[in-house]
């Protein structure tokens, strides 16, 4: 597998591994993928009072590309507003990591994880009103 140095570096030393308190009203959680498909990403964001993503954590079951994509996207969304985070597309991740075509679906999963975590956060806020 011809992975770029960026993928290998993120695999070897992934940032943002971990979990946030799922019950915290400022935390949004998503789980995407399926064990039977070989990829599962759990991604969590914490949004501060200014509407900015202050923390982003992930846990990933999957190949090097899945791990690197989750590590990268959590890094990118930190400090961003929800709208800015939503604007990050899978192809940005795939391009940045020079993912081989067969691994592009890993970046799709990472994008999906971010959007679902945001949705979860917004839903929580909606319910709290």
């Amino acid at each position: 597998m011809a992975y770029s140095k960026k993928v290998m570096d993120l695999y070897a030393d992934p940032k943002n591994i971990g979990s946030l308190d799922e019950k915290d009203e400022n935390v949004g959680t998503s789980i995407v993928g399926a064990p039977s498909c070989g990829d599962v990403i759990k991604l969590q964001i914490k949004v501060d009072e200014n509407g900015k993503i202050s923390e982003a954590k992930f846990k990933t079951f999957g190949c090097g590309a899945a791990i690197a994509s989750s590590a990268l996207i959590t890094d990118w969304i930190k400090g961003k507003s929800i709208e800015e985070a939503r604007a990050i597309k899978n192809r940005d991740v795939a391009e940045h990591l020079s993912l081989p075509p067969i691994k592009v679906h890993c970046s799709v999963l990472a994008e999906e994880a971010v959007n679902k975590a945001i949705k979860d956060y917004l839903l929580k806020k909606e319910k709290a009103k």
């Binding site: 695999y11 498909c37 070989g38 999957g62 190949c63 899945a66 791990i67």
Partner: peptide, 23 residues
């Protein structure tokens, strides 16, 4: 709990194989 290709990636100095879809 872990994926085969990810294990192999952690030990690039060892040639093995996996039945994982990713490989």
């Amino acid at each position: 709990g872990v994926e085969g290709e990810a294990i192999m990636l952690g030990m690039r100095d060892v040639c093995m194989s996996s039945g994982s879809a990713c490989t």
